[in-house]
Design a protein around this nucleic acid. Structure first.
Lengths: 168, 168
DNA sequence: TGAAATTTTCAGAAAATATTGAAAATTCAG
DNA sequence: CTGAATTTTCAATATTTTCTGAAAATTTCA
């Protein structure tokens, strides 16, 4: 596989991967493109390389910035905005993990907590069973949540590294 | 919140959560319904409770069985098929983790390995930079993959528990 | 058997999501 | 300021994903 093919293949695959992980294809591809770009890129270059519209490029770039996985970079003597990727994998995976944990685990935990707190439930046998199951989910989700916090709120990969040493 | 509302709320929320995790809404809702159902349910009951078509119910049930998070159960004296959820959270989260790891991490790792193995790449400065970045991703992905294997291939939650003790 | 009950399949419809492209807003050099 | 360059917005469109419903296949009991 030569360089050109490898690069295209990488960007393409990263896009597919992204969509499986609930990140949209374009966003994942832009990140991939910037990850392997030797220099900062403009919106126009990105549009051309990925064959996407300006609107799409702009929206995706904005969201990637919001997630903290890419940055704007101004280049002296050029009015255009340039973009670079956060190249430290630990840093950006961290950021994504943190955001997704908050969006996806916290609401579940909130609901489970709320149900468990309800005094009304648990009169009948069926309700007791229901509660038991919800409590198990609550406990599990709580554990996962605490774990994610430890992993994602601690500076960089520190804890992850500890974990890896323990397990591998 | 009373029992009925809690149950509906739980199923609804689980569905939303599911779609964020790349599992479709109906599948997640069926799992939720079966998780808190005191007894096995038929396709017809599921259709009625979730207001979905037979085709949708059938497809979703099949996939859930394929994933190993629910089971078929025959009930004496009834020709209909009944379904029950795997209620042990550790067991089913394990199964899902394993499947998704194979589907989503392995292909990425394969590609990265293939690129790294390519002798042709690395002549120019740009290519060297590309390779460096790909190698970092490879190393990271490899670590995550090994970790996932350890976690998901070891019996039940054993290793996860160890991990939790270490970290929390 | 055979016919009623049940399950499966799958083409088309509906819903959800992503993308375009052009107009509006903003920025900035002269 | 002014207007050309650049970025942002968003209604319209396209694509992808999910769901329906009815026909076909399968199962099971009499």
């Amino acid at each position: 596989m030569d360089y050109k093919k490898a690069k295209i293949n990488f960007i393409e695959t990263w896009g597919v991967l992204g969509s499986q992980w609930g990140i949209n294809k374009t966003m994942a591809q832009i990140q991939a493109l910037l990850l392997v770009a030797p220099d900062p890129l403009t919106t126009d270059t990105i549009m051309e390389e990925l064959q996407i519209s300006r609107g799409n490029a702009n929206m995706s770039l904005r969201q990637l910035i919001e997630w903290g996985v890419i940055y704007k970079k101004s280049v002296a003597g050029d009015r255009k905005e340039y973009f670079v990727a956060e190249k430290d994998i630990w840093k950006w995976s961290h950021k994504i993990g943190k955001i997704r944990k908050e969006r996806e685990i916290n609401p579940a935990l909130d609901l489970l907590n709320e149900i468990v707190a309800s005094k009304e439930i648990g009169k009948t046998e069926e309700e007791k069973e229901f509660m038991k199951q919800i409590k198990e989910l609550q406990s599990f989700t709580g554990t996962v949540s605490a774990l994610a916090d430890k992993l994602f709120l601690s500076p960089k990969g520190e804890l992850l590294l500890k974990l890896i040493k323990t397990l591998l």
